[in-house]
């Protein structure tokens, strides 16, 4: 990575860390990797989020883990449900990892030649938490065979 990109990435990472410190949110940092991890308590299960600054691409990247693991026989339905749920969103998308059954919500933005403000990070965090809160029960029901992909977003209708 060239020196300018590295400096820019470090600046964005510093903004991210400052945001969390300013809010008093606890976090675990991996500064060499420009990664910040945090866990928030929701109504039921804890929500794990991972921010990463991808310097080579000038991206601020968030993965919010849905605390449900799909078994092999639920992967196809899970992939259909991820597509359904993603279509229902205005920003970001869900991804099912068909190898290990994990599910994440992904949100990322470019910061090339830009100055990222804490309001954007606040928005990303809100979205990451809101997606876990809104969808983790549905993915759990899907995993248990009590909800189909076709019914996945019908809950909102």
């Amino acid at each position: 990575m060239d020196e300018n990109k590295k400096k820019q990435a470090e600046k964005v990472y510093a903004t991210l860390v400052n945001y969390f410190d300013g809010k008093g949110f606890s976090h675990t940092d991996e500064p060499e990797e420009l990664v910040l991890r945090c866990t928030f308590k929701t109504d039921d299960l804890p929500a794990d989020l991972r921010f990463k600054i991808i310097g080579e691409l000038d991206l601020i990247h968030l993965l919010s883990t849905i605390p449900v693991q799909l078994s092999a026989d639920r992967i196809e339905e899970g992939c259909l449900a991820a597509c359904s749920a993603s279509n229902d969103l205005f920003d970001g998308n869900f991804i099912v990892n068909s190898e290990d059954g994990s599910i994440v919500y992904k949100l990322s933005y470019y910061y090339t030649g830009s100055i990222i403000g804490e309001e954007m990070i606040d928005y990303m965090l809100d979205m990451g938490l809101a997606m876990i809160d809104r969808y983790n029960d549905r993915f759990l029901l899907l995993q248990k065979g009590l909800l189909s992909a076709a019914e996945f977003v019908a809950q909102d209708e």
């Binding site: 933005y109 606040d122 928005y123």
Partner: peptide
């Protein structure tokens, strides 16, 4: 998508 909330986003983004 590209958020520009509370930020100064350049044309290169």
């Amino acid at each position: 998508s590209q958020s520009y909330r509370g930020s100064i986003i350049g044309v290169d983004a």
